[in-house]
Design a binder for these strands. Structure first.
Length: 112
DNA sequence: ATTATGACTTCAC
DNA sequence: CGTGAAGCCATAA
């Protein structure tokens, strides 16, 4: 993250910050919204750095299966706890009503 | 420059 | 629903 090379990360953070309460999204959805669908992994990388940052609800970002793959990087059950605190039911590191709580930035947050 | 790795995704079995 | 393989791109060694 030196210079303006972290523009992608910054965009990811902005989108994640905009995720509504009790909603979640996927790495691919964010990457797609940013115009780089193939960078789904990079979004995860950005979250990796956000996990230690304040103001970034990284717990609202999961993979396409609704599985909280990064909870281990969060701090064990901290991620699950946060999600449940927002009314999101979780089971076996996986969001139950994923389809209902899913928030697609490309649709909900479309540009004017 | 090259190889390995990863909070990913999708398809196939 | 679980596992495996291929595709994808940036970071690390």
């Amino acid at each position: 993250m030196e210079k303006s090379k972290d523009n992608f990360f910054k965009d990811v953070y902005e989108v994640v910050k905009v995720i509504p309460y009790g909603r979640v999204t996927s790495y691919g959805a964010v990457a797609d919204y940013l115009g780089s669908k193939g960078k789904a992994r990079m979004v995860g990388w950005a979250m990796h750095g956000a996990s230690r940052t304040n103001g970034i609800p990284a717990h609202r970002v999961v993979n396409s299966s609704g599985q909280m793959t990064g909870k281990i990087y969060f701090g064990d059950n901290r991620m699950e706890k946060l999600l449940e605190a927002e009314g999101i039911k979780v089971s076996k590191d996986r969001i139950l009503d994923f389809k209902k709580v899913f928030w697609n930035p490309s649709v909900e947050l479309k540009l004017d």
